[in-house]
Amino acid sequence: MPTYGVRGLAVAGASAVGAATLCYLLTALFPLVGVRMARSAAEQLDRDVLLGAVLAEVLFSLPYLLALLTAGTLVVIWTWRARKNLDAFPGAVPNLSPAWAIAGWLVPLANLVVPARVLADLLRNSVWQRRQSWLVGVWWASWLVFLIGDRFVARAEQQRYDRLTELPRNDAEFATYVRFYEDALAPRLVPAVACLVAGIAFVVLVRRISAAQQDRLSRAVPVWPGQPVWPGRPGWPAPAAPMPVAPTSPQVPPTPGGTIGA
């Protein structure tokens, strides 16, 4: 069975997930910056400062979106490769096909359940330690809290922002922007903490699964048929008695990534 190296991809994916998590935390804490800018605008009665706060938040969000896109691409590729490796591991009994390693992240509603099942498959059939399965539960629960909480908070903020005066002219109208940023911080902390927990748990899972698979790949020795024997040829030495070997999985010509003798 063809196999795939996952160590380098795991490092890249874990780094991208860590970067996306850090960038999201910075965007979640932006109200600390926004409230200062809103107070400065209220003191000066300067609407341009409020516009600067909006632009600053957009600039804070761009690195997060870039890191999220990069992390998502690397994670999908890593998940598929790790799942394909299970097909070459004797004794591995995954519950989902390799196609779900990709579709599970992309199909709406299914992406709330399938990725957790795929990761549970990878952990169970790679690490072989059931006591670590709680990590999947921690990641899945915190990931759901992050997804749902982030959308809920974003929608609620947008509704409150739409009620603000578009062109504030006096102290009272500028003060509404100050209160907007003051009230925005607390709700953002819930998805921010969930994102942090999910990011850490996922990085740990990726590293443990990849280390276990890479160790198994490095210890595997390909099993190939011996040289042909031509019985009856004059002078041909009698073949040595074959050494007993364990049953092997069907072999195919060498491909990039190698094969595993089951």
Rank of each mutant, 00 (worst) to 15 (best):
A56D: 01
E57G: 11
E57L: 13
P63N: 06
Y64Q: 10
L65E: 05
L65R: 08
L66K: 02
A67M: 08
A67S: 10
L69C: 14
L69M: 15
G72M: 13
G72T: 12
T73D: 04
V75C: 12
V76I: 13
V76A: 12
V76C: 07
V76F: 04
I77M: 08
W78E: 06
T79F: 08
T79V: 02
N85S: 06
N85K: 04
N85V: 03
N85E: 06
L86M: 03
D87F: 02
D87V: 03
F89D: 10
F89V: 15
F89I: 14
F89R: 15
P90S: 14
G91E: 11
V93L: 14
V93A: 15
N95W: 05
L96R: 13
P98Q: 04
P98W: 00
P98C: 00
A99C: 02
A99I: 06
W100I: 02
A101T: 00
I102H: 06
I102P: 02
A103C: 07
A103Y: 07
A103V: 03
G104A: 13
W105P: 01
W105Y: 04
L106F: 10
V107A: 12
L109S: 12
N111I: 06
N111M: 06
L112A: 09
L112K: 05
L112R: 09
V113G: 04
V114K: 08
P115Y: 01
P115L: 01
P115W: 00
A116H: 08
A116T: 08
R117F: 10
R117M: 13
V118P: 04
D121E: 07
D121M: 05
L122N: 12
L123E: 06
R124K: 11
N125A: 09
N125C: 12
S126G: 02
V127Q: 09
W128K: 14
W128D: 15
R130F: 10
R130H: 13
R130C: 07
Q132D: 15
W134A: 14
L135Q: 15
V136M: 03
W139P: 02
W140Q: 00
W140I: 00
A141Y: 10
A141G: 14
A141Q: 13
S142E: 01
S142L: 01
W143N: 01
W143L: 01
L144S: 06
L147R: 10
L147V: 05
I148V: 12
I148A: 09
G149I: 08
G149P: 05
D150A: 11
R151M: 10
V153E: 06
V153F: 04
A154D: 12
R155Y: 12
Q158L: 06
Q158C: 01
Q158G: 13
Q158F: 06
Q159K: 14
Q159A: 15
R160L: 08
Y161T: 08
